[in-house]
Design a protein around this nucleic acid. Structure first.
Lengths: 225, 225
DNA sequence: AGCTCTTTACTTGTATGGAAGTATGGCATA
DNA sequence: TATGCCATACTTCCATACAAGTAAAGAGCT
């Protein structure tokens, strides 16, 4: 018999937190926007307390900023935070790529190829959300192939800022370029060439170095630093 | 004229959070311990609400676990979380070491040498707290020397679990060994040898790979996974 | 003894009222 | 016109009361 999977009903505060976090990451709630405990509570039809606790969690995620007695605001995207998260991602995923090139299970590589195919379809269909999700799964599969699934979970926290930026940039930049880089990484992994895999990954993730200042210059209200 | 540095009085909830976080990291509140909103509030002499909000933040830090209607517990140290944080640190600090070896400012290297001297003194005096603090400053200086101060701030979040473990292990393991590894890293940086610097850093941080399972086996109640 | 139900004493979650602080617009004054 | 004061309408923060759920001890029955 399987272990019964018990699911407890999530608290109101937790649900509000999830709801807000998704809306912030999708850019539905734009950077700099003011949100109010009272307003959100009235809109949902609950008291202020659960909303307040959701705000606290949102602030812990770095997605909101609570200024006492002044108001709560959706965080602007910190350029330096994005760049340092990018630095960390490059270092980590370079090591992951090396590890997989040296001893990666073949079936995981096949699954990565599947994701690239999905990215082609999402690109042609103009489905930005699906493209971003598949992009994430591609990199997640790399971590799993290296036997470091937990590492990806840790990176998720750092990716919070990058995700918001990506929802802006994906409508602007060339997605087929991204797909080509994914393919280059996978090719190197398949050939079992650690140096090539690392180089391809670093090239891929350094793409952001040029894009971030460009995005920040185009929409200065959304950014800080 | 300088910008006036305005400091707002931190909220009660924020102060309680800081207090609890330090106590958890120092091992003062042991893993698995049960804490109660009511008890803490009574001990401090305030109402439950600020304490409750401090608990929420502590849970966001991964240092506590709130089980609805059941109780709140200090998180056990997750072996897999520590190992994945270690993996990330190795990857990041390897890149940092390379960068500094290639183009690191000399004065920062001198400050790193100062820290090693402090570590010798702290070791002889048996001052574990000071040794750990200096150890942190040594690695922080490396990030600053690479012009990536923000990266260290991001790593702080991941180090939360590792810090608790270190307070346990530092009383057990050989500190002079650690100092020797720091010296080896600094020597490679001074010689401007990126490969040697990276190798020394990876060796240093892989030390934990052997220690963590050893610690977990010795004190199973404090760990999970 | 062993099992079942109930009571009771907890826990965290939510609602609400008021306290303290901040920004803003209006008004009097120079 | 420009400046300073002040009432007012917000905001978040804290205290308190109650609701809902859990766990363990104990009574009563088989």
């Amino acid at each position: 018999m399987d272990i019964a999977r018990i699911t407890i009903a999530p608290s109101t505060a937790s649900q509000v937190h999830d709801w807000l976090r998704k809306r912030v990451q999708r850019g539905d709630l734009p950077p700099g926007m003011r949100i109010s405990e009272t307003e959100v509570a009235a809109a949902i039809g609950i008291s202020r307390q659960p909303v307040r606790e959701a705000f606290i969690r949102l602030a812990s995620d770095g997605l909101a900023e609570v200024r006492p007695q002044r108001g709560t605001y959706i965080s602007r995207i910190s350029v330096s935070a994005v760049l340092s998260a990018r630095f960390i991602r490059e270092a980590v995923e370079a090591d992951l790529a090396r590890a997989v090139a040296e001893a990666g299970p073949r079936d995981m590589l096949d699954r990565m190829a599947d994701e690239i195919a999905r990215q082609h379809r999402a690109d042609e269909a103009g489905n930005v959300e699906e493209f971003i999700d598949s992009d994430d799964r591609f990199h997640h599969l790399l971590a799993q192939a290296a036997g470091q699934d937990a590492v990806w979970a840790d990176l998720e926290r750092l990716k919070a800022q990058m995700n918001r930026l990506r929802h802006l940039s994906m409508r602007v930049f060339d997605r087929s370029f991204t797909i080509g880089q994914h393919q280059a990484i996978l090719d190197a992994l398949r050939q079992g060439d650690p140096d090539a895999a690392e180089a391809a990954m670093r090239t891929h993730l350094r793409q952001m170095l040029a894009e971030v200042p460009q995005m920040a210059a185009a929409q200065p209200d959304c950014f800080t630093d």
